[in-house]
Computed example of a mutant assay.
Amino acid sequence: MTLTLVLKTLWLISAVGLIILVLLHSPKGDGLGGLGGQAQLFTSTKSAELTLNRVTWVLTIIFMGLTVVLSANWLPA
């Protein structure tokens, strides 16, 4: 296994994981519920959402970093 193949595999795993995590996030918009003041009922920050945000940011950084490294051809072929 070459280093390029390992990094491409990590890139693919981070891409799929990022897609899944973004889909797991709860919507932040108030929508029409904001007109009646009902949006303030559910504004508490949960630890699960905080952890989900942190993991999403870490996967985003990994994905973007690997994208730059793989696209710039910095690795030997």
Rank of each mutant, 00 (worst) to 15 (best):
M1T: 08
M1P: 08
L3A: 13
L3Y: 05
L3R: 11
L5C: 04
L5A: 11
L5R: 10
L5Q: 14
V6W: 04
V6T: 08
L7T: 02
T9Y: 13
T9V: 12
L10T: 06
I13E: 09
I13V: 14
S14N: 13
S14F: 12
A15D: 10
A15V: 13
A15E: 08
A15P: 01
A15M: 11
A15I: 06
V16N: 06
G17Q: 05
L18S: 12
L18G: 13
I19C: 02
I19F: 01
I19A: 12
I19W: 00
L21T: 07
L21M: 15
V22C: 10
L23D: 03
L23V: 04
L24A: 15
S26R: 15
S26Y: 00
P27S: 03
P27A: 02
P27K: 01
P27H: 01
P27D: 02
P27C: 00
G29C: 01
G29V: 03
D30A: 11
D30G: 10
D30S: 14
G31L: 12
G31T: 04
G31M: 07
L32A: 14
L32F: 09
G34H: 07
G34S: 14
L35F: 15
G36T: 12
G37F: 01
Q38W: 06
Q38T: 05
Q38N: 09
A39Y: 11
A39D: 06
Q40C: 00
L41E: 13
F42C: 04
T43I: 07
K46G: 09
S47C: 00
E49A: 02
L50I: 13
T51Y: 00
L52N: 03
L52E: 01
R54T: 04
R54L: 13
R54G: 09
V55H: 02
V55K: 01
T56E: 02
W57Q: 07
V58W: 06
L59T: 08
L59G: 12
L59I: 05
L59H: 05
T60K: 02
T60W: 06
T60V: 05
I61S: 13
I62Q: 06
I62N: 09
I62V: 14
F63D: 14
M64A: 12
M64C: 14
L66P: 03
L66V: 15
L66H: 06
T67N: 09
V68P: 00
V69N: 03
V69Y: 04
V69L: 15
V69R: 08
V69F: 08
S71Q: 10
A72F: 09
A72I: 13
W74N: 04
L75G: 08
L75A: 12
P76K: 13
A77W: 03
A77M: 05
A77G: 07
